[in-house]
């Protein structure tokens, strides 16, 4: 399949089940809501080393938040509920509880639950106050500034992690520029985050390594400098590859996000240096979710 000169390879992204939750962080100003959100989703690019994958989902207008203040929705994913239960209170405790004027609310209902105030209230040393209204419980933890308010817990969802696209471009500059355009389009899709720096991962990896204990390593088939030494997936005109990884609350969300990215890239076209779009997979044996690029674009 070739669209606007860009080859859509007959490939698929292979993704895994993850468990995720959405949190809504508010503050007196959008700036402080975003600082808290960015801080609490920082260092969360890959479960391999960070224990979770997290990112800002979108900004929220005051009328869309539980306390009528500006807010930010974030998504956090982990490999299982146990992992999520461990990481969520830790990140809120370190990054939201501490951040000026912030509050933290559940962003979804249902499923298994992860603790927010249920765990964080103990910071209050007995002075914490629970308030139950409308069947929901919030906690008020006294802090030097006033009170930190948060929901008791948040629901979770069985999501999808590791959706991706690979952008094969003619130069490093053009490929990165194209990837940025794709990210901008993909960020608009609700229910997804792109956990890597600026949404982009230049070190897209393969599974395993010659070294013991390494789970991921250089994806040599896509490394342009290695094309003489190893079996390569890159046509001669490709000088650089960028990957965009997608985690989402559902198969559909990741699928939509993938589509948005490819569409943006196709719109740029071969003329802007986009040669082909590919996806990372492991032969289809490891992950149950397959995002077939040509089907998505069909």
């Amino acid at each position: 399949m070739i669209l606007n000169g860009v080859e859509i390879r007959d490939s698929f992204a292979e993704a895994f089940p993850m468990v995720g939750t959405r949190l809504i962080i508010t503050a007196d100003t959008p700036k402080w809501a975003m600082i808290a959100a960015k801080t609490m989703t920082g260092f969360a690019t890959s479960v391999i080393g960070c224990g979770c994958e997290a990112g800002v989902e979108r900004e929220l207008a005051p009328e869309d938040t539980p306390d009528g203040r500006p807010g930010v929705a974030v998504l956090i994913f982990a490999m299982d509920i146990k992992g999520l239960k461990a990481v969520v209170p830790l990140r809120i405790g370190q990054c939201v509880l501490t951040s000026p004027t912030s509050a933290c609310y559940a962003g979804m209902e249902g499923g298994d639950v992860v603790s927010i105030g249920k765990a964080l209230r103990y910071f209050g040393d007995g002075w914490q106050i629970a308030k139950n209204v409308d069947g929901r419980r919030i906690w008020r933890v006294p802090v030097m500034e006033g009170e930190f308010v948060c929901d008791h817990e948040s629901g979770t969802v069985s999501g999808v992690g590791g959706g991706n696209i690979l952008i094969l471009g003619t130069s490093r500059a053009e490929t990165l520029a194209a990837a940025e355009v794709a990210v901008e389009a993909m960020e608009k899709v609700e229910g997804c985050i792109l956990p890597f720096p600026g949404g982009i991962v230049r070190s897209g990896s393969k599974v395993g390594s010659k070294y013991k204990g390494m789970f991921a390593s250089s994806n040599n088939a896509y490394c342009p400098t290695l094309r003489a030494q190893t079996e390569t997936k890159l046509p001669p005109e490709v000088a650089s590859v960028q990957e965009i990884v997608i985690d989402g609350v559902s198969f559909e969300a990741v699928s939509a996000c993938t589509k948005a990215g490819i569409e943006a890239l196709v719109a740029l076209g071969r003329d802007k240096g986009v040669v082909a779009i590919d996806a990372g997979n492991y032969g289809g044996n490891l992950g149950p979710y397959h995002f077939k690029l040509r089907e998505i674009m069909a």
Partner: peptide, 17 residues
């Protein structure tokens, strides 16, 4: 006297309040 975020939540979650 205090500005309490909790109050904002209460009035949004409870019609009666």
């Amino acid at each position: 006297e205090h500005d309490l975020v909790m109050l904002r939540v209460l009035v949004r979650r409870s019609e009666a309040l």
